[in-house]
Write a protein that binds this DNA or RNA. Structure first.
Lengths: 344, 344
DNA sequence: CCCTCTGATGTAAACGGTTACATTTTGCGC
DNA sequence: GCGCAAAATGTAACCGTTTACATCAGAGGG
C-alpha cells in the first residue's frame, strides 16, 4: 500500500501541476470549475489528481475567495429535542444550498458569544444566533459590523438584524382560550425560566386570554418553573397543596414541565382531566405517548431552523436582501389531557 | 455609528500593524501568544486592535499552522433523539479541549461520504464517522491515507482505525434472558433495518439468549422492522394475527418500534404485560413515560459521542497514540412493560 | 570604549489556493 | 503560408497569517 511520504504531508495543487506538466493555474481552473481548459488537458489533470488522491484544500481556497460555504450556529445548549430539531431544520436548508454547519454551544453570556463569534471569523459566511434570554442585546451589539446574522427566538428585534421567532404569545393565548371554553375559570400556569423570552411571552399569552374572558389573574396560580421536568413536578405539588386555591386546569409553559406536573397529579391520585386538566407547550414527540396524551401547542421547531438558514443564505447570496423578521405560527393540538374530545 | 469602509472588508493584521506602527510579525506574536514582545508594545497593539475591532482570521492562521482546532462529524442522519445525543456528547468533549464541530449529515453511501470528507479537507483536524451500515468498508477505504478518524457504531473493525461501539449483542442478550427468566418461552423480536449493524447485533443477542436457554428460534417470531414506529406497529399487528404462534413477549430492536408495537397491542385490547410483555432498546427519554413504562436496554449515547471525540483528540494531540477500539456497555432498565416489578 | 550577548523587532518566505493579465497556441479565412 | 482573433495556458500577485532568520538596540564585561 502506497502511503504519503509522511502523515499529514498531503498532496497539493503543485504536486498535481508538476506531474501533469501544467501550471498550477490550469489545475486550479479544472477544480474550480472554470471553463477555458481544453478537454484533453482537463482529463489528464483529473487523472493525475485521482492517482495522487488530490483534494483541494478548502481552507486555502476560502482565503482567496473569502467564501467558506459554511454557516455558523450558536446555540445556548445542545440538550433535548428542541435543539436537535433546530439543527436538523438548519441542516436541511443548508445542505439544500450546499452549505456546511459549524456549530457551537453553551453560550450563556455576551462574553461567551463574543468569543465564539471571534473564533468563527474567517470560517463562516454567516451566523445564526439563538439567544432566548431577555438580555440578548449586548450579545448582538458585540457582533462585528458587517457580520451577516439571523437571530432565532431572540428577545430583541433590531431593524438591521434578521430574525425568526415563534408566535409564543398567540399560541399560549389560544391554548388558554381553549381551556376557558371548557368551562374552566381557575387556570394555573407553570411559567418558564425567568429571563427567558419564550417563557415570558407564553405567560403573557396566558394572561391575555384570561383578561379577555374577564377572569382576573390570580398570582397564586402563577408558579415559577424553569422548563425542567423537576420544576414542573414541584410546581404541581405546590398547586395541589393550596387547598383554597386549587386550580381546575394547569397550563405549563413547556411539555417537560407538563410531564412533571402530570407525575405529581398521578402521585396524588388526582384524575386528569376530570379533576384537573393539563396542557403543555412545544408538542415534543413524547407528548402524544403520555397517558393521558398531552394537549400541547405545536411548535414548528425544525421549520424555525430551516427558515433562519434560508433567510441567512438568501442574504448571503443576494447582498441587499432586506433583513426579514418572521414569526412562525403554532398550532393547537388537543389530546386527552385537557378534556374529553369534542367537548369544546 | 462607524461602519467598516465596506461590508466584508474586514480589518486585517496589516491594518493593526500600520496603526500601531509595528510590523505584522509583532502583531502576530501578540495574538498567537508568543513571548518575545515587550509589555509596552504589546499593550499598544492590543489597544489598537480593540479600537479597530480586529479579530484574527482563523482560516488564514490554520493555513500556516495546519491546525484547525475543528472536528468533523459525519452522520447518516440528524433525525431523532439518538443523533442529537451523539452530537451533544461529542460537543462536550470537544469544547472541553477547545475544539469546534463541523457537522455534516445524510451520508448513505460511500460516494456521499467521500464527497463530505473531501469537502472537509483543510477544515478539520480529524473526523468522526458514523456508518451503521454493514457495508461500511468502502467508505472507510475511501478515506485519505493519513486522515485521523474515529468510527462510531461501525460494522468494520480495522486494525489502524479507532472505533467506539455499543455492546449491542450483550445488551440484547441480557434483555431476552430477563424475559426468559420471567418464564416466557415464546419471545418474538422486531428486528432493525436490514443492513444495519446495530439491528443485526441485537438480533444476534436475541438468538444467543434463546439458544442458551435451550429454546429453538422460531422464524415466525422474527419480524423485520426498520427502526420506525410505524414498522413496529405493523410488526405488532402481524404478530397478533398469527393465532397459532402468538408470542408471550416481544423484544423490539429499538424503542420507537416498541412504541409502535404497544399501540398495536393497545388497539387490539391485549394487556401489557399480562398477556404479552414488551421490551425495547435504546432507552430513549420517552420510554419511561409510556404506559406501561417501557423496559429497555439503556444505551449511553452521549457517552458514545464523548468517548469518540476524546479518542480522536488524544490521537491528534499525541501522534502515535494507538488506534483504540472501545465497546460501551449497556444497562438493563426494567419497567412495567415486561412484568410486575420484583418478579424475576 | 569596544565587543559580545541578549532581547525585541523587522523581513520575507511560506501555507495552498485563485485570478487578472501576459503570453503562447490554435484555428480559420484568405 | 500569413495574419489575426479566440482559446488555452503560464506568470505572478494576492488572500491573512506564522515563523525562521536577519537586524538592531542596549546591557554588561573587559
Amino acid at each position: 500500500m502506497v502511503t504519503a511520504s509522511r502523515t499529514g504531508s498531503m498532496v497539493t495543487i503543485k504536486d498535481v501541476a508538476r506531474k501533469a506538466e501544467v501550471s498550477v493555474a490550469t489545475v486550479s481552473r479544472v477544480f474550480s470549475g472554470a471553463n477555458a481548459v481544453r478537454e484533453e488537458t482537463s482529463q489528464r489533470i483529473r487523472d493525475v489528481a485521482a492517482q495522487l488522491h488530490y483534494t483541494p484544500h478548502v481552507g486555502a481556497r476560502s482565503l482567496t475567495t473569502s467564501k467558506t460555504h459554511t454557516l455558523g450556529v450558536l446555540l445556548p445548549d445542545l440538550y433535548g429535542e428542541f435543539f436537535s430539531e433546530i439543527i436538523r431544520g438548519i441542516d436541511v436548508a443548508a445542505r439544500r444550498s450546499g452549505y456546511h454547519l459549524l456549530v457551537s454551544s453553551s453560550h450563556s453570556d455576551a462574553r461567551e458569544v463574543d468569543d465564539a463569534v471571534r473564533s468563527m471569523r474567517g470560517r463562516v459566511d454567516g451566523l445564526m444566533l439563538m439567544s432566548p434570554d431577555l438580555d440578548a442585546k449586548p450579545m448582538v451589539d458585540a457582533l462585528p459590523e458587517g457580520q451577516p446574522v439571523v437571530l432565532l427566538n431572540s428577545a430583541i428585534r433590531q431593524p438591521g438584524v434578521a430574525s425568526v421567532r415563534i408566535a409564543n404569545k398567540r399560541g399560549a393565548k389560544e391554548m388558554v382560550r381553549h381551556l376557558i371554553a371548557h368551562g374552566h375559570k381557575r387556570i394555573a400556569i407553570i411559567t418558564g425560566a425567568k429571563q427567558n423570552i419564550d417563557g415570558e411571552q407564553r405567560r403573557s399569552g396566558y394572561r391575555a386570554a384570561l383578561t379577555e374572558a374577564g377572569i382576573a389573574p390570580d398570582p397564586r396560580l402563577e408558579i415559577q418553573g424553569d422548563f425542567t421536568e423537576d420544576s414542573g413536578y414541584d410546581a404541581g405539588r405546590t398547586l395541589l397543596a393550596s387547598k383554597a386555591s386549587r386550580p381546575r386546569a394547569i397550563f405549563a409553559a413547556n411539555d417537560a414541565m407538563a410531564i412533571g406536573a402530570l407525575s405529581a397529579l398521578r402521585e396524588a391520585g388526582v384524575g386528569v382531566p376530570e379533576e384537573i386538566a393539563v396542557a403543555g407547550f412545544d408538542d415534543i414527540p413524547t407528548a402524544r405517548h403520555l397517558s393521558p396524551p398531552l394537549s400541547s401547542v405545536h411548535v414548528p421547531i425544525a421549520e424555525l431552523g430551516e427558515r433562519a438558514a434560508e433567510i441567512l443564505i438568501a442574504g448571503l447570496t443576494n447582498r441587499r436582501y432586506p433583513a426579514r423578521h418572521e414569526t412562525l405560527r403554532t398550532t393547537l393540538v388537543i389530546r386527552g389531557s385537557c378534556g374529553p374530545p369534542g367537548h369544546a
